[in-house]
């Protein structure tokens, strides 16, 4: 985006964007790891080789990245480090060249609203809200919603969860929760989507539908993703594979 004539409003918006840590006309959000080692897994990790732990890694913006990891190798831990909800590591997670810790809470919230989205393995649905409200919460959290309410309905139809939209989060099955969590992650703008075993509770058919939707939404945003899973799969046209 090139700005030739900056009006006062442009400058105002730019300042707002800077405040939230969003500078849309810069290049894509860079995520890099710098000799990252989880403190609880340190002994196990130093004994074996890993494509991720304890080495410099740069995730290519816009690329579909798969991280394959057997149980207990720190898959979920990695996702939490990437999304900055856990910090018990040595080394660094660098976002646009800066460690997570250097960003303010407001700036991190801005990134989570505009630049990076997440699907947790444990889904994290509000049980006191309906399925639709769980999605809406994420959609209307941003000052300007990225997608319309109709678009949400459309995505729900594609993932076969239209019938549960008005059900309380408490009564949803794991499969339903997982699909709601996927839709919730897709209603916001992002440059990176971080997914932790996103299809673990889905049957083959639903998993493929979900994968197709995710791929479309990433393409629409020119966004990349980092997906962690236990096994080898061919649901996406992955650009990069790592073994954890």
């Amino acid at each position: 985006m090139s700005v030739v004539v900056a009006t006062a409003m442009d400058i105002f918006h730019l300042e707002k964007a800077l405040y939230w840590g969003i500078i849309k006309n810069t290049s894509y959000m860079q995520i890099q790891l710098d000799n990252l080692v989880p403190v609880p897994l340190r002994d196990k990790i130093v004994q074996r080789s890993s494509d991720i732990w304890n080495r410099p890694v740069a995730f290519t913006p816009g690329s579909f990245t798969k991280i394959k990891a057997p149980s207990g190798t720190g898959k979920t831990t990695l996702v939490h480090y990437l999304y900055h909800i856990r910090t018990d590591y040595t080394g660094q997670v660098l976002v646009n060249g800066q460690p997570w810790a250097s960003y303010s809470k407001g700036a991190i919230a801005g990134m989570r609203q505009e630049q990076v989205s997440v699907i947790f393995q444990d889904l994290r649905i509000f049980e006191q809200l309906t399925a639709l409200e769980n999605i809406e919460l994420k959609r209307v959290m941003n000052a300007q919603a990225y997608c319309t309410a109709e678009k949400v309905k459309e995505m729900a139809a594609r993932l076969n969860v239209t019938h549960v939209l008005n059900q309380s989060g408490r009564t949803l099955s794991y499969g339903e929760r997982q699909r709601i969590a996927i839709i919730r992650a897709l209603v916001q703008p992002f440059q990176w989507l971080i997914m932790d075993e996103p299809f673990s509770h889905l049957d083959e058919d639903n998993a493929n539908r979900a994968a197709q939707l995710i791929a479309e939404e990433c393409k629409a945003r020119k966004a990349g993703f980092i997906l962690t899973d236990l096994d080898h799969d061919t649901r996406f046209a992955y650009d990069t594979h790592y073994n954890l």
């Binding site: 809470k105 919230a109 989570r112 609203q113 994290r124 919460l137 959290m141």
Partner: peptide, 15 residues
């Protein structure tokens, strides 16, 4: 717990 999840999902402390 709810507030922590809200923040995880990107709710700004200011909000």
């Amino acid at each position: 717990k709810e507030i922590q999840l809200l923040v995880t999902l990107g709710t700004a402390p200011r909000q």
